[in-house]
Design a protein around this nucleic acid. Structure first.
Length: 507
RNA sequence: UCCUUGGUAGCUCAGCUGGUUAGAGCACAUGACUGUUAAUCAUGGGGUCGCUGGUUCGAGUCCAGCCCAGGGAGCCA
């Protein structure tokens, strides 16, 4: 028996096919069953009528609960109403395993419940689409770097020391010694670049931050290219063409998936425009509202948004009251009451989200107005800045005190380090951090001491400067943050199959 | 770690200034209906009101502590 895939049904119109998968939904009337079959490549309605299958098979169909695995044979017919445009008129149905009562229903669920059922949640359409887009992004990343002559390398995950010092690391036992789970493969990438020229790492990294925000994971995947004979400007050129190509690939190859997650692609299509390059000084002026962007002021637009949200909340409140009145009118059909009740529930949820926004914006406004020159950007500062743009923004030349020890001091102004952060638009914030590396051995040693890092652990790294130092640069891209922005997800946790974050180790 | 919001049926929620036997929708089960798109309609089972203690004649409701979760800050990709 040859099995067919739902995604290819269009090639078999009028022909008989056999599909194997799971029943994601079943409806029935007298003498007819409608089964939505899911096979991993798509969804398709299969019609089982009493006339076209044996009585025995028809009676068996009663057992098909949500997520029961089945094999269906039937004829492909065109039906514009169906997703995918085709349905299958079944001639035979075979049950493989009847599923127990399935916990994930079509109704809305809370985040905690969905996360507890992540292993099942992945089967639903929206999550399926996100994972397909993630896959396309991963593929495009490899494609881009391989095409550009980069060698992929794997950095170690056990490290003997805190690489950058600042973040909290996960400790583990390594044959009696304390080892840390890697928070970056960059230093190893630099070493490899001196052997290969251009390299990129693609692997997991670990941060033990007790952060509970929409941007943080404890375990996430990072791509870290490193290029010899590169300065910060060549680095920015590379980042720009890299992100442009990945986003373009998703746009051309994942149209259906982007539609499934409800992504408005007009913003993504702006990716062909040049990315603004702002110096730290300029970015700070914009955040503080001292400089406008395309006639937009950060402070004012945030204040306007607050007003808009408040107006919207009033509107929603009005609609809720109206619908609640409507439900009470006597003689209303049960179906209509249910419809209105569902609408009210949805509006109330929306209201809760907006309330959250009104609680957050004043804090962001406050932090933007009082931003202290010389500090690193916080999450809210990135939000305030990137809300004003529709393409990624590059901020470069940072005060050297707030950045990592290995960044090159700017030759024109020693206050600055040649780091660059790429911030995703629409309020998403940092997706890339990178820069040109320090080549001055003495300055590096000084920096390592300043950051109170154990010198002996960095001797091998200093060797890279001692034996034929060259200018070089690189960057690190957070895969999940890129997926989150491209899909416009409300939280990073949906961008990875099984998120690991503070308080979440299962499933 | 801090600020903030919440925890009531398998799920999503309602439950007013404390007061009889704690409710709805969905899901599930049974039945009706030959084209449904979260199908519809009828009937039914289903609860340690997060935990512990306190106030009270009486606590889902008030108070305290703890636990868990959402959002944010710090830190970061």
């Amino acid at each position: 028996m040859q099995a067919y895939l739902i995604k290819n049904l269009k090639d078999y119109e009028g022909q008989q096919v056999t599909l194997q998968g799971w029943a994601s939904n079943r409806r029935d009337s007298k003498g007819i069953y409608f089964i939505i079959l899911r096979d991993g490549t798509g969804w398709c309605q299969c019609v089982v009528s009493a006339e076209s299958v044996s009585e025995e098979v028809f009676n068996e169909c009663k057992k098909i609960t949500t997520e029961t695995s089945i094999i269906i044979t039937g004829t492909v017919t065109k039906d514009e109403k169906q997703m995918g445009g085709f349905e299958v008129q079944a001639t035979d149905v075979q049950i493989i395993a009847v599923a127990d009562e399935y916990p994930v229903s079509k109704k809305e669920h809370g985040v905690d419940f969905l996360m507890d059922n992540r292993h099942l949640w992945l089967r639903s359409q929206r999550q399926w689409a996100i994972m397909k887009i993630r896959n396309q992004i991963i593929f495009s990343i490899h494609q881009f770097f391989q095409k550009e002559g980069f060698i992929q390398m794997d950095a170690p995950l056990f490290t003997g020391n805190a690489c950058e010092g600042t973040s909290n690391l996960f400790e583990t036992d390594f044959y009696g010694d304390t080892a840390y789970l890697s928070q970056s493969g960059q230093l190893y990438g630099e070493a490899m670049a001196f052997a290969m020229g251009k390299i990129y790492t693609f692997g997991p990294t670990f941060r033990a931050e007790k952060s509970k925000t929409r941007r943080h994971l404890s375990e996430f995947w990072m791509i870290e290219p490193e290029m010899v004979f590169f300065d910060i400007f060549q680095n920015m050129d590379l980042i720009e063409s890299f992100l442009r190509e990945v986003v373009s690939n998703v746009l051309t190859n994942c149209k259906a998936e982007l539609a499934m997650v409800g992504r408005d692609t007009t913003v993504l299509e702006q990716i062909i425009k040049p990315f603004p390059r702002l110096s730290y000084d300029e970015a700070v002026r914009i955040i503080k509202g001292e400089q406008d962007v395309n006639g937009q002021n950060s402070i004012k637009s945030l204040e306007d948004e607050l007003k808009q949200v408040e107006a919207k909340m009033e509107e929603i409140n009005k609609e809720i009251v109206e619908r609640e009145e409507k439900i009470k009118t006597p003689g209303m059909k049960k179906g209509e009451i249910g419809f209105n009740q569902a609408k009210i529930d949805k509006l109330k949820q929306e209201l809760k989200d907006l309330e959250e926004v009104t609680r957050n914006i004043p804090g962001w406004l406050n932090s933007a107005r009082n931003f202290e020159y010389g500090n690193d950007f916080g999450g809210s500062d990135e939000t305030v800045l990137t809300r004003l743009f529709d393409v990624p923004v590059m901020v470069y030349n940072w005060p050297h005190e707030v950045k990592a020890f290995y960044l090159k001091r700017d030759p024109d102004n020693s206050k600055f380090a040649r780091g660059v952060d790429v911030l995703a638009p629409e309020g998403y914030g940092e997706i890339v951090g990178g820069g040109e590396r320090e080549t001055d051995t003495d300055l590096l040693i000084e920096k390592i001491k300043e950051h109170q890092l154990p010198m002996e652990a960095f001797e091998w790294y200093l060797d890279l400067r001692r034996y034929g130092s060259v200018p070089h640069a690189g960057f690190g891209l957070g895969l999940e943050r890129l997926v989150t922005w491209i899909c416009k997800l409300p939280h990073v946790r949906e961008s990875i199959p099984f998120p690991r974050m503070y308080g979440r180790l299962l499933p």
